[in-house]
Design a protein around this nucleic acid. Structure first.
Lengths: 358, 358
DNA sequence: CTGTTAGCGCGTTCAT
DNA sequence: ATGAACGCGCTAACAG
């Protein structure tokens, strides 16, 4: 039996050239062990199809053959037969690895990777997905790039809701990181409760008898409403309502030191004690400027968009966004979407920690 | 002709239940376009098998059908059939997104993503690849996890050369980031010339009449020899050879502030003017300690492992490792390996910049 | 307890 | 210019 199927190549008699050694297949193992492929498959996957029952002796022989041949299953074939490829697509409307490390996606990806590892999925980064204009697109050349994976995690700011609508219409499983509301579509997403957290933070400040202003800055649009709403709610609930002109300030998209300086001056002129800055990077910048001034020493700067791992923002305090956990949760939701096709849209809202340094 | 092949499911008459919407296949596209699958395949891959020649009109119809159906090729099927997926696998022996952002892989990945985008490849991050011990492995459960990708970029420190040998034996195209030498295998890699750079840096310091010590710290093993060699070369070439006991120091894997402090003290006791620290993070720590002491003010700390984007390390000066460019080059080499199967091992050594602040 | 066989979706050769 | 048919390696239903 060990002598069955001796030839190690499909030598047709001619052309026995030094061909590249083909990887052994289940058929090779079956031949070597003197059994059929279904037995091999059953042993390897430790499964019992229908009424298949493999004797221990056979099992041993198959295992032995596997060892001798150095057989390893072909993932592609397995995926083909199973209809799934254990791949999670990751699409960001902006570059995934931006040069500024402290940028938005990084912490999400940490969580996505962790969860994917736990769930046994590989990650497919859609980096090649660009339309003719060179913009990142879910439908480069009109075709769905995400279809390559079993499902997708999306992040970033998209200008056109159309692509997302189309994705949803195709019943393709995907989960957004960050709240997304698109009329007429039941989206799955993992959100963070910025509203409550901002409200609580503002409340605390007001209760301590100080005045506070909200500094708008460039940050992902879907985050903005929640935070401003929470801020307004706190103001409305406050017995000591603040003057309007000292309530909001806005930073340009790419603020310079001068912009920060002007903001600090503005705060001082309006007797603002505390600044709630949307963007954590800007918060750090504003704080540095403030502390460089004798007059600005009493101005407290809080970040509304810090990630738990951002050291500088953590020092300042403010909102600590659970980015990593959001990434993890997005993968979990997606896996549910993939494995339970019947399930409706999945949504999770994670709490946002309020952290004020002592 | 548009009316050919009308039925949109293989409706056998019975059982037309609300089946889960299957992903469209080439056959679906073919039916929709009123052509055969081979035509679809030819159009999609923009190829001309044997004597196949597709008319422009047909080509258009196929493209249209693809769009309408949202067709995307099945990666597994393609891989099985011997096709290519325009996918680059990325495998790191350690976690890709470590919590410490300043860690090793990040800057590499920035480059990898950039180049992949330029070359029109997507990235497959092998996150699921763990063996039973939970360790990352190229052959989890004995299978090559990279099979779906056309080739792979590897990074990180591997304990077992066996897996790499096996990968090479399979004639699977892959490129290492960082120099790798494994006996009996012709590896492709992109390296950085640490040796020359360290030598030049050391030379400069010695020429200015100062004494210098080399501080070993935890860093990727493959980088170590080059730098120490360069250092030794400079010492050997120097007319004013240094005392041996003041030449090398070693930091523990996870140094504490105390370790940094002891190092600074050591330097002071041995009249060392300048410290060459292997690990940029440690360099920053040591420098902070040194500057906090009045006596340590004259001690210069240089980093031997900084990335161009690391602000703190850049301030110190030392070696600037072109991590991003290494990532880019790795992808370029890999693409060559993929598209020109005949080509031998690809190797590039990138220059390392020496940067000493004024 | 085990063997045979039909797909999975796609690339490619050959016949038309 | 186009369609039919085969095989890639594997899973799983089915027939012994």
């Amino acid at each position: 039996m060990g002598t069955a199927g001796r030839r190690d190549e499909t030598s047709t008699g001619t052309d026995v050239a030094p061909r590249v050694r083909r990887r052994p297949t289940q058929a090779d193992v079956a031949r070597q062990a003197g059994v059929s492929v279904s037995i091999v498959s059953a042993v390897i996957n430790d499964r019992q199809y229908g009424n298949i029952r493999v004797s221990d002796a056979t099992r041993q022989r198959v295992r032995k053959a596997v060892q001798e041949l150095g057989y390893a299953p072909n993932l592609a074939a397995r995926g083909l037969a199973g209809g799934t490829n254990r791949l999670i697509g990751v699409f960001t409307f902006q570059r995934i690895f931006p040069l500024a490390k402290e940028d938005f996606f990084y912490e999400f990806l940490v969580g996505v990777e962790e969860a994917a590892e736990e769930e046994g999925y590989n990650l497919l980064l859609l980096t090649a997905a660009k339309d003719k204009a060179g913009q990142r697109s879910l439908y480069p050349e009109g075709t769905n790039g995400m279809q390559l994976a079993d499902g997708g995690v999306l992040a970033g700011w998209d200008e056109s809701a159309d692509e997302i609508r189309r994705l949803a219409a195709e019943a393709y499983p995907f989960v957004f990181i960050g709240r997304r509301e698109i009329p007429g579509v039941e989206l799955s997403y993992v959100a963070a409760d910025y509203r409550s957290a901002t409200r609580e933070l503002t409340d605390r400040i007001l209760r301590s008898g100080r005045t506070v202003a909200f500094v708008r800055g460039s940050s992902a649009p879907e985050l903005v409403p929640g935070r401003q709403q929470g801020f307004r709610e706190a103001l409305g609930a406050s017995p000591t309502n603040q003057r309007d002109d000292a309530t909001f300030a806005t930073l340009p998209p790419e603020p310079s030191l001068l912009d920060y300086a002007q903001l600090v001056t503005w705060a001082s002129e309006h007797s603002v004690d505390c600044l709630l800055v949307e963007n954590s990077r800007h918060a750090v910048g504003v704080d540095e400027v403030a502390r460089s001034r004798p007059s600005g020493a009493r101005l407290q700067v809080l970040s509304l968009g810090g990630a738990p791992e951002e050291e500088a923002a953590a020092r300042l305090g403010g909102l600590v966004i659970p980015r990593r956990e959001m990434g993890r949760e997005a993968v979990r939701l997606l896996v549910r979407l993939i494995t339970e096709p019947g399930a409706g849209p999945q949504r999770t809202t994670l709490p946002v920690e309020v952290h004020v340094p002592a």
